[in-house]
Structures are given as structure tokens and as C-alpha cells.
Design a protein around this nucleic acid. Structure first.
Length: 250
DNA sequence: ACATTAATTATGT
DNA sequence: ACATAATTAATGT
């Protein structure tokens, strides 16, 4: 259901080495996205012609923390989680990025290396450009800079509030908040509630909330009995968002 | 109040 | 059949 229009996947090759796609990309892929929405057709065409499109399997990394930031990316389809490794070696998920957003925009915050690792949370399709083009984009394209700075601001705010939550709230509240954020960013309406639109494990949630998968499992089981959520393997549906809001504010 | 350990069961390929 | 995910109980800080 996802991304089939863009790439033919028929390879039995090495999974990490997804390949460049040659079919010409359509302008409509970008024209409605915030950083590009103010541009005319020719401008979008020019940008697309410079882009490299690539597909990532779930779990494949788009770029790695600390490596030189040579490209920046636009997530066309799928989901990417941005992960940082703590000094003790644990993974901490900083953000989830839904389709239609830029990522790996180190240049925008004056960095030469990526500050975090980006991993495809589901099969994803990503455009990328050499970082050398960043300044040109900012200079030439109206709205590109302002829109990207908006998203940076939003993300900083989000990371910030979560850090505060970690310090102040208890696990149940943190998990509630994490779920609420996930459904607001990547939620998809289904019959009995709002489902998180990509595979997410208890392990993932525990990394988001700085707990263990066991605690997350217990919390979710309890909520499931109360009818607040519903979960299958790698799938979580929130049936009663309001109840979670209430819980998160205790 | 939550983590850790470990044993058990379910689920997807 | 096998690996990975999820649940559950017991024990520890």
C-alpha cells in the first residue's frame, strides 16, 4: 500500500543497499509540502531533478550520528525515528518524523556532522540532496528557509517538553504523553479509534519514555482492559484519547 | 514506584 | 521450525 507508485521492489539483493530510482519523479510529490509550497512548477522541477530518491526497509538507517553531514533529506513516504545513543550505549528515540518533513538538516543548525541517527521505522521513501545545495535553496526559494526553521523550532520544543516530562512525570503519564504525541503526528483514523500508522514495539515505546519494555507492556495491558487502547503485535490503537489526556495530567 | 530477571506464551516468516 | 514480540510473576532497589 505504501510507495508502490514510486519504486519497483523486486530485488533479492542486500537489503541495506536500496537503489536509486530512475523513473522521473512527479512535481506533485513536493508541491504541496510546506518547504516547497510557495514555489512554482519549474522551481519544483529543478529541485526534483537534483534529488536522489531512495527506498529504505524498516530498520535501515538513513544516516548515522557523528558522520559528516553531506546530504539533507525529505521524507516522502513512511516514518523515520531519530535516535541518539547515550554514553552507556542505550538507544533513546528523540523524535518520530512523519512523511512530508525534512530531516538531516544539520546545516540549518550550523553542524557539520549529523547530531543523531535516523532509522526507517517503516518502509520509507526518501529524497536527498547534497548539503552543498542547502545555501542555494535557502537563497533561491521563497519560504524554504522560514518553513524549515519553523519545523526546527517545533522539534526543539518537542524534545524539550519530553525532557521535562522525563524529569517530572511518572511512567504512566509519560507513556500516555508519548502515545498522544504519536497519534497527533502519525495517527490514522480507524473504526475504533486512532491507530499509530507504523509498526511500533513496546521496546520502541520504552525508549521514547525512558522505561523498560516490561513496564510499557504492563501499562498497555492495563489500559487495554479499561478499553483505552487496543494493541496487536507492533500495532497500537488509541480508542479513548481523552482518557489519556486526563491520565497524563495527573 | 519502578527495574531486573527469568520463564512462558503468542505471533509472524 | 524458528526468531522475534508480548505477557506475566517473582524478586530487587
Amino acid at each position: 500500500m505504501r510507495g508502490t507508485a514510486i519504486c519497483g521492489t523486486n530485488s533479492n539483493m542486500d537489503t541495506a543497499a536500496a537503489r536509486t530510482v530512475f523513473p522521473r519523479l512527479d512535481e506533485s510529490l513536493l508541491s504541496h509540502l510546506p518547504p516547497f509550497s510557495k514555489l512554482d512548477r519549474q522551481q519544483v522541477r529543478a529541485i526534483l531533478d537534483l534529488a536522489v530518491s531512495r527506498r529504505y526497509d524498516a530498520g535501515a538507517s538513513v544516516f548515522e550520528e557523528g558522520s559528516p553531514a553531506d546530504r539533507f533529506y525529505m521524507l516522502l513516504d513512511g516514518y523515520v525515528r531519530v535516535v541518539r545513543i547515550t554514553p552507556t550505549g542505550e538507544q533513546v528515540t528523540a523524535l518520530h518524523i512523519p512523511a512530508g518533513q525534512l530531516l538531516g538538516i544539520a546545516k540549518a543548525i550550523g553542524k557539520e556532522a549529523y547530531p543523531a541517527t535516523a532509522i526507517a521505522a517503516a518502509e520509507s521513501i526518501v529524497l536527498s540532496w547534497p548539503m552543498g545545495l542547502w545555501d542555494k535553496f535557502v537563497a533561491d526559494y521563497d519560504g524554504f528557509a522560514t518553513e524549515t526553521y519553523k519545523t526546527i523550532g517545533n522539534r526543539l520544543g518537542e524534545v524539550n517538553t519530553r525532557v521535562v516530562e522525563m524529569a517530572t512525570q511518572q511512567v504512566e503519564q509519560r507513556v500516555a504523553n508519548a502515545l498522544l504525541r504519536l497519534i497527533s503526528q502519525t495517527g490514522r483514523k480507524v473504526s475504533n479509534g486512532i491507530e499509530i500508522d507504523f509498526p511500533i514495539t513496546r521496546q520502541d515505546l520504552s525508549e521514547l519514555t525512558a522505561t523498560t519494555l516490561h513496564t510499557v507492556s504492563r501499562v498497555l495491558s492495563a489500559w487495554e482492559k479499561q478499553g483505552l487502547v487496543q494493541s496487536k503485535r507492533k500495532r497500537i490503537t488509541v480508542c479513548d484519547p481523552h482518557a489519556l489526556v486526563v491520565l497524563s495530567q495527573v
